[in-house]
Amino acid sequence: MSMMILNARRVWRPIGRLLALAAAAATVAACSTSDVTSAPLPAGGAFTVDATTQWVYVSLADSAVVTPTPTSGQSSAWDIAFNATNVMLNGGQAGPGGVTGFCVCQNTARNPSNTEWLAMTPAGEKATFDSLTRTPSGATFVSDQLTPAVSGIYRGSGTTATASPDSVFFVRYADSTGFAKVHVTALTTPTAASPGTVTIEYTLAGNADAAFGATRTAQIDVASGAKNFDLNTGQVTTSATDWELRFDGYTVRVNGGASGPGKSAAAKITDFTFATATPASTVANAYRADVYAGIFNTARYYRYNLAGDNRISPTFDVYLIRRGTRTYKLQIINYYSATGSPRVVTFRYAQLSE
């Protein structure tokens, strides 16, 4: 298979043609995806995408990175997208493409030890990838849905819903300058559509080394519609940018990722109560933004910190990506560049003949 290296601004030709195009390399490097006029490559290959700072959208049929227009949620041009450890498919709530996914999960099913996971290599796992030629019998494909970073803060539903005060989250500010510790302490007049008036307790810290300040209380009336809450000011706001939490029915969104333009993210605190959690109670890697996710959320393509070095290790599980009558097999084989930079994701894929 030809090796391609893709990023959000350029498409490199197959390695077999690189020497022939060497004289024009500067011109090619300056071209955007829309500038490339050569015929599409076969639906398959190995690719590397730089998903360091933003979502990178890939059309598997065209073997190219594309720019969704006007937004990813309104564009059918892409099939799969990458941002750090997140993977999104263009279907369900994520986009109009009707793309769905299924995990064969041949490695995860064996439940390997940490040592066995770490021994897996791209070369060693290629035979498994190559051997899959048809969709397994009984495969159930799923589409992407909103996966909020904040969940589990309510118990039950409808008129019997209650707060879950032991569900504590750290929430990063939208401008990333500090963070808050938050939990819900009470609900007033919940209904089937809304938790009613939500009472939260929260406290602020200017940075990861600062202690939390005094505990504050706020009440957010969600019964009258979705509300954006600014943790810094302690007020509900109509600003499109200056907020951290959006209470929308029983869904709580953060101002980041799929839900907003900011840098907010949340980390659930599992081993501490609201009173005892301190800034040192979690690590930066625990914070997550809202994403649209399906199979890549329920069956993650990586394991974290297997060797105690905070590294991402691929599972080398094979996924099936379906769009209309086309089905592709896909295997993520690396999360690091040749120089060790993270969030540079390499995957291989091929269209099944069925």
Score class of each variant (00 low, 15 high):
Met1Thr: 01
Ser2Val: 07
Ile5Leu: 11
Arg10Leu: 03
Arg13His: 02
Leu18Glu: 11
Ala26Asp: 13
Ala26Pro: 01
Thr33Ala: 12
Thr33Arg: 10
Thr33Pro: 11
Ser34Leu: 13
Val36His: 15
Leu41Pro: 00
Thr48Val: 10
Thr53Met: 09
Trp55Cys: 03
Tyr57Ala: 08
Leu60His: 10
Ala64Gly: 05
Val65Pro: 03
Val66Ile: 08
Val66Thr: 04
Pro68Gly: 07
Gln74Tyr: 05
Ser75Trp: 12
Trp78Ser: 01
Trp78Asn: 04
Trp78Leu: 09
Ile80Val: 15
Ala81Ser: 14
Phe82Asn: 01
Phe82Ala: 03
Phe82Pro: 06
Asn83Asp: 15
Asn83Tyr: 15
Ala84Lys: 15
Gln93Ala: 15
Gln93Phe: 01
Ala94Pro: 02
Gly97Ile: 14
Gly97Glu: 12
Phe102Pro: 04
Phe102Glu: 02
Cys103Met: 09
Val104Leu: 14
Cys105Glu: 04
Arg110Gln: 13
Asn111Leu: 13
Asn111Glu: 15
Asn114Lys: 11
Trp117Ala: 07
Met120Glu: 00
Met120Tyr: 15
Thr121Ser: 15
Ala127Val: 08
Ser131Ala: 12
Thr140Glu: 14
Asp144Asn: 14
Leu146Lys: 02
Pro148Lys: 09
Ala149Asn: 06
Gly152Met: 13
Ser157Lys: 06
Ser157Asp: 11
Ser157Glu: 07
Thr159Leu: 00
Pro165Tyr: 03
Phe170Pro: 00
Arg172Ala: 00
Ala174Ile: 03
Asp175Gln: 11
Gly178Arg: 00
Ser194Gln: 05
Gly196Lys: 04
Gly196Arg: 05
Val198Gly: 03
Glu201Ala: 09
Glu201Ile: 01
Thr203Met: 04
Gly206Leu: 00
Thr215Gly: 08
Ala218His: 10
Ala218Met: 08
Asp221Pro: 09
Ala223Val: 01
Asn228Asp: 12
Asp230Asn: 14
Leu231Met: 04
Leu231Tyr: 00
Val236Phe: 02
Thr238Ile: 09
Thr238Gln: 05
Leu245Ala: 05
Arg246Asp: 00
Arg246Pro: 00
Phe247Arg: 07
Gly256His: 01
Gly257Gln: 05
Ser259Arg: 13
Thr270Pro: 01
Asp271Ala: 10
Thr273Tyr: 07
Phe274Gly: 02
Phe274Ile: 11
Ala275Trp: 08
Pro279Ala: 09
Val283Pro: 01
Asn285Glu: 15
Ala286Trp: 03
Phe296Gln: 03
Asn297Cys: 11
Thr298Gly: 10
Ala299Phe: 11
Ala299Val: 05
Leu306Gly: 07
Ala307Ser: 14
Ala307Thr: 05
Ala307Pro: 13
Arg311Asp: 07
Ser313Arg: 15
Val318Asp: 07
Tyr319Asn: 09
Tyr319Gln: 10
Leu320Val: 08
Arg323Asn: 09
Arg323Glu: 12
Arg323Leu: 04
Tyr328Thr: 01
Leu330Ala: 13
Ile332Pro: 03
Ser337Phe: 13
Ala338Leu: 13
Thr339Tyr: 05
Gly340Asp: 10
Gly340Lys: 12
Pro342Asn: 13
Pro342Ser: 13
Arg343Leu: 12
Thr346Cys: 05
Arg348Thr: 10
